[in-house]
Nucleic acid binder design. Structure first.
Lengths: 213, 213
DNA sequence: GCAAAAGTGTTTCAATTACACCCATGT
DNA sequence: ACATGGGTGTAATTGAAACACTTTTGC
């Protein structure tokens, strides 16, 4: 008799929040406590079995909304993990990663079995989920250097400094404000709104938008 | 009653061969003629159902060897396709892409139901396999610009011109020989063997190796 | 006025590009 | 000798980085 292969979809969601010690913004992600074997009681990525009538990304969104209350702006397939030894039963996981905006992050629920962790300081997780988190982090840090995804962490309108803060938090580096500004404004899709952000204790910075391609 | 979700692994394999018209090297890939419904008689990517006791990449290698006789040097996961509308029955495909060396390519079998096509000129394929081929091509052409994968198309030892030919064939561009040489030799893992390639009708070029990291 | 971050200008340095020119081999 | 691609030299251009300096707000 042939053993059945389970097919699950999981998601690594990232949001930027202040680090509990340093106060500087860092990456956080939500985990779910397992309520059944295997790995009962361990933290794991949100996810669940793929339903016969739903697309892969639909499944990711559904399970993410159910467990964490999140509807992320950016969702992207990461990788599929299917080693025979990653679980007692045979399960192939198609993993997505998501980026959560500040306003959306505010709506996140910290339920009974859901908790957020600093992405670089997650405990020992169920299955091979530590590997997956590591992989997602690497991919995010690589991709932010050559793509637009940093905007998935800002609002519609943003200051150059806010965008720089995202890069600094994700890549864990310090960037020269002057050079970052020039590089950013060199992209033709970044346009000034003419309005300014007020309420700061210094010169009010201009607000920009990212023109959709 | 819940419909069963099929799980298959397919592979897009690339090799460099002369274009039938221009004679210049281009990308080719093997396709398999379907011998059952759906899409009976159409060309499709080599692959098959995932066995319960094999890893994803093992499955890719197995089906590839069985249908095409190939054991590619480079094999990498591409993407997983799982839209509900990509087939009459529900099937999720985990797709790999492979790069085949010239010597390995020579061992390829052109069986009854296996045929090679110029990658940019494939006919209308079964399922969403045209989309997948397009995706694999884009990924290959992007990745060759920032990684080492060009070496998967050369032998252990190679001349700078051979390596340049790979880049030119894949990216469909002309590269300045002098500048390409300097850029290539700037990488510390490229080392001269001291030996030279003979039998050319001009100055014998030096042979190089790629030191493993 | 002072602090603090926004925003501009300028100099330096490294990498890419274009292209002229010499080298070593087969015919 | 000459054709052919291998291989070297070099000037021009571009872009990244470093950092001094000016501007505009809140307090």
């Amino acid at each position: 008799m042939q053993q059945r292969i389970e097919l699950a979809v999981s998601t690594v969601s990232f949001a930027l929040r202040p680090h509990p010690e340093t106060g500087r913004k860092t990456l956080w992600l939500p985990l779910v406590k397992r309520i059944r074997e295997p790995f009962l009681g361990r933290w794991a990525l949100p996810g669940g079995p793929l339903q016969p009538d739903e697309d892969l990304d639909t499944s990711a969104r559904r399970t993410l909304l159910r467990t964490t209350g999140l509807e992320p702006a950016h969702l992207e397939q990461l990788y599929s993990f299917g080693g025979v030894d990653r679980s007692p039963d045979r399960v192939v996981s198609i993993v997505y990663w998501a980026l959560v905006r500040p306003d959306e992050d505010a709506r996140a629920i910290d339920g009974e079995n859901v908790e957020w962790f600093v992405a670089d300081e997650v405990p020992e997780l169920a299955f091979d989920h530590n590997t997956i988190v590591r992989y997602a982090l690497d991919r995010l840090r690589a991709k932010i250097t050559y793509s637009d995804i940093a905007h998935a962490f800002t609002g519609e309108e943003f200051t150059i400094a806010q965008l720089r803060e995202v890069h600094e938090a994700v890549r864990q580096v310090r960037l020269d404000p002057a050079n970052f500004r020039r590089q950013t404004l060199a992209h033709p899709r970044i346009v000034a709104t003419g309005r300014h952000l007020t309420g700061t204790s210094h010169r009010p910075p201009e607000l920009y938008r990212l023109e959709r391609a």
